[in-house]
Structure formats: C-alpha cells, structure tokens
C-alpha cells in the first residue's frame, strides 16, 4: 500500500510526467495569476467585463436589466467640491449624520504630478448584491426591471446585517425613517419622474459621474466601459459582487 503510494508519488514528480495539455493548462493558469497580481486591483477592460458580468458568449445575460443603470467615474476630474453630496442630501432628504454618496481622499506622497486623488463612492448596485442576500425580511432587494438595489422602508427591522455585508460602506441607519437608507440612483426622487440623471451626476461641475443605461450600446457608459484603450476598473472586485459602478481616468 505505502509502497504503491511512494511509487505514484515518484511518477508524479517533475514536469516531464505531465502531458502537453496539462502543461499548457498549467502555464495558462500561471499567466492568469501573474496577470491578476501584476495588475493589483487594476484590471484591463476585457477582464472587467468578463469578471463583472458573465462569461463571454453570454452577451445577452451580460446586462440582465433593461434599462441596466450604471455609472462610470472619471476619477482624475474629481476635485472634491462635494456638490454631488449636497445635491444628494437636498434631493433625497439625507440627515447630517449620514450620506448616500461620499468622496474619499487618497494621499499619494510620492506622486509626481499631484499628491492627492479623490474617489467618489456610492452604492454599486451590485449584480450579486450581498445586502439583498442577507436581509432577513427582503426589505432591501434588487429591482427586477432596472437592477437598482432598493429599500422597502416598512420592512426594515434594523438588524444592520446589510451594513455588515456591504463591501462598500454604502449604507447607514436613518433614525427618522427607522430604516437603513442607501442610494437608489434617485429612482423615487428623479428617475421615476422622467429625469435622465441622478442628482449627483447632474450636480457635478467636472463631469466626473457619467450615469446611464449600460445595456444600451449607444450610451456613454457602455461606450466608455467597452473602449479597449481605456483602463476601467471596479472597487473591490475580490468581493465578487459584480458592481455596476466603474472607475476610469481621462
């Protein structure tokens, strides 16, 4: 028995014993891994779309909603004037202690051209929304038509497990509503009333936030996300939530 095991082990030792197919597969895997690690959180366009949505060839399933609301952020245009935060607060009645969208600041002391970069964040309206999965009463859910992650305020029991599950810190408890509150792409306040843009996208003086229907190939969101020469990434891809907010520069 043990002798057999040793024998097998000896047979498996070394690359010579591998078939060429296996070797090719192994090398491919190595390349993929190096690609991921070399790029860090930066991913090329192809990998973003592949990673974020579906396998190639499932094009129709790539953007499962219609309209499939999405946003792409032009990071380097953001100057943290916070007009988006103010517009959001006014439009959606956000209390002082909370926010639906925020601007983060990244300090880069060894940056050559500038030493600071600003990063707008909001709910990523993930295709695989962890918050909607963990909610015990389905108070937060994916809208079946447009994919917006919504809140049904009256069902929220305030267990806050959605806040725990969200990899983007996009949720807070609204004491006035007695429910967790979050970005809904201004669905109740603007989109359902015929407006095309969210309050934050409209308020941005620098054109950082481009909002639109990514299932529409003529939309700017679609064209920018699918532009091969453009580097596009998402935040925390490793969380596997398939977010719908993209980031780019330029």
């Amino acid at each position: 028995m043990i002798r057999n095991l040793i024998k097998n082990k000896q047979q498996n030792e070394g690359v010579e014993a591998l078939s060429s197919d296996e070797r090719r597969h192994f090398l491919k895997m190595g390349l993929k891994l190096t690609g991921v690690f070399a790029g860090g959180s930066l991913l090329s366009l192809a990998s973003v779309v592949e990673k974020v949505y579906a396998t190639p060839g499932q094009f129709n399933d790539k953007y499962p909603y219609k309209p499939h609301y999405s946003m792409i952020m032009h990071l380097d245009y953001c100057v943290d004037c916070e007009r988006c935060i103010e517009a959001c607060a006014v439009t959606n009645d956000i209390p002082k202690y909370g926010f639906r969208t925020n601007i983060l600041e990244r300090q880069i002391p060894d940056g050559i051209d500038q030493q600071v970069e600003f990063m707008p964040v909001l709910c990523n309206h993930c295709n695989v929304a962890q918050c909607a999965r963990v909610c015990p009463t389905a108070a937060t859910y994916k809208n079946e038509q447009n994919g917006i992650v919504m809140m049904d305020v009256k069902k929220c029991i305030g267990c806050l497990s959605c806040q725990l599950a969200c990899p983007y810190n996009a949720r807070y408890f609204n004491e006035e509503k007695w429910a967790v509150d979050k970005c809904n792409f201004c669905f109740d306040t603007r989109l359902s009333k015929g407006e095309d843009l969210t309050a934050c996208a409209e308020a941005c003086p620098a054109g950082v936030r481009i909002f639109g229907d990514i299932s529409d190939q003529r939309s700017r969101v679609y064209r920018e996300v699918h532009q091969v020469s453009r580097t596009v990434w998402v935040l925390r891809p490793e969380a596997g939530t398939k977010p719908n907010v993209f980031y780019t520069r330029g």
């Binding site: 380097d76 245009y77 953001c78 100057v79 943290d80 004037c81 916070e82 601007i103 600041e105 051209d113 500038q114 030493q115 600071v116 970069e117 600003f118 620098a206």
Partner: peptide
C-alpha cells in the same frame, strides 16, 4: 502645467 490637467494638485477639495 496647463490648468486643464492635474486637477487635484491645486484642488485640495472640501476635505483638504
């Protein structure tokens, strides 16, 4: 450098 580049080198933002 042109004023249309390197936004955050002058814009310290509300945070700054």
């Amino acid at each position: 450098f042109a004023s249309s580049t390197r936004c955050a080198s002058c814009h310290e933002g509300a945070i700054g």
